[in-house]
Amino acid sequence: MNYKRIPYDIDKIKIPQGEIHIIKNRCKGCGFCVEYCPRDVLEMSDEFNAMGYHPPRVKNPENCVNCGLCEMLCPDFAIWSTLKPDCRQASKKKSAEDEKEAKIES
């Protein structure tokens, strides 16, 4: 990632990695998730689902940061993202560390 200013604690921060889940047959192909994904993870696929729509597919899985915008924009409850298992532990540890720091500060 390109930063204008490199944060001094960049070595501590781990960019979360998300995983996209799509229930293809629930999708109505509106394209909201593809259009508004801030990290350009998704694209429309050529295949048809059971209702005859084109569901999205994951184009750049490594780009997903689990922001959850696709999940919130989807009108059909067909797409959601989860944290990748290895990131999950990291983020948990991080939050524990944060809590400790917060206690010390207070």
Binding site: R26, C30, G31, F32, E71, C74, P75, F77
Partner: peptide, 26 residues
Amino acid sequence: PMESLLRMDRIPHIWCPGCGIGTTVT
């Protein structure tokens, strides 16, 4: 993640593709 607050036996819903009501429900 929203399945617990939805009546899953009624999904998919009747709203058209590109409708914003589903998003509002989310």
